[in-house]
Amino acid sequence: MKVPALTFGLIFAAGQAVADDTLLFTTESYPPFIFQGATGPVSGISADQVRAIMEGIDIDYRIEIMPWARAIALAETQAATCVFSAAQTPERQARFRWVMPLAKSQSILVRHRGAGVAAQTLEEAKAFTVGTHRSDYTETVLQKLKFPKIDISSTFDVTLAKLLRDRIDLMPMSQDVYDQLHKRGVEIEKVAQLTDQHLGIACNRSVSWQTIKAMQTKLNRMIADGTQAKIYRTHGLEPPR
C-alpha cells in the first residue's frame, strides 16, 4: 500500500520514521464506522478515513478487526500498532499518541422496544442492568456514573444481541449507530444521552512523532477540503459539526 507522498514535507516527515515501516491498525466491527463483508477490505466511515490518511504516507499498513479489548490492548502494548476509533478520554490521554478526530460521537442509552424498561433519565436507568463490551470507554463512563449493574460482553454485537433477547435492559451506543439500526427496523429506542466524545486513532507510544504528525496533517487536510464529510455521506450519515 505504498503510495507517493503528496508533498515533499509529508515525504520528509514519514521518511524520518525509520522504525515505522509497517503499522498495524486494530479495530472492532462497528457498522457503519467499521465493517467487513464476506469479501473485500475493511470498510466504513472510520476505516475509509484511515485508508485515505495512509495513502499520502510512505508506510506499509494493514487493518485487522478483532474484539475491542484485544484491539486496544495491542495498541497500548505492541510497537507499531494503532487502534481506531478510540475515544480520547482523560484516562487514555497519556497512554497513546493521538490523531484526531475521525468522529465526534454522542453516546446514548437505548432499550429494547416493548421490553417494559421504565427509564427516562440516567438516574432512573441505574435501576436496570446495562450492558456494554469489554474495554469500551462506555464501561468507564458507566462506572464513574455509579451504575450498579453492568454486564460486560466481548463485542458490541454480542451486547446488542443480549438487549434484543431481553437478557440485559439497556446498552450504550453512538447516536449515529442508533440511527442506522433504527432505519433498518431494529427494535430499539432511545432512553437518555450518556456522553459526548471525540474519537480518533490511538497509537502505541513507540510510533514516532514524525509519523503521528504526518497522519494528523493529512487528516486535517481531509477535514478542511471536505474529504471527511464526503466519506460520511457515502455511508449515509451527515459529518460531525
Rank of each mutant, 00 (worst) to 15 (best):
H112C: 09
V158R: 11
T159H: 05
I45F: 04
T89M: 12
L181M: 07
G226H: 14
M173R: 05
H112L: 03
R70Q: 15
T132W: 02
F128Q: 05
Y61L: 06
V18C: 06
H198Q: 13
R184F: 05
A229W: 03
K104C: 08
T77I: 02
L10G: 01
V191K: 03
V83H: 05
T159G: 08
F84T: 04
I152C: 05
M222V: 10
V207D: 01
A161Y: 01
T159W: 03
T155H: 12
Q78K: 09
E91C: 07
E238T: 15
A73I: 02
G114H: 11
Q120C: 01
T81R: 03
L145M: 15
L163I: 04
A5M: 14
A47M: 11
Y137K: 01
I53L: 12
F84D: 03
R221D: 04
R205S: 01
T132V: 03
A118W: 09
L109C: 08
L199Y: 01
F128K: 00
E139D: 05
M215V: 09
S107E: 14
I53F: 07
S206A: 12
I152L: 13
L102F: 08
Q93H: 12
S154E: 14
L199D: 01
I72V: 15
P31S: 15
Q78T: 11
P67H: 05
R111K: 15
G37T: 14
T138Y: 08
A202L: 01
I188E: 10
V18T: 15
A115N: 10
T121C: 08
F147Q: 06
L122D: 02
D169E: 03
I152H: 01
Q120L: 10
Q78N: 09
R184C: 00
K183A: 12
E55F: 01
T39M: 09
A119F: 11
Y137H: 07
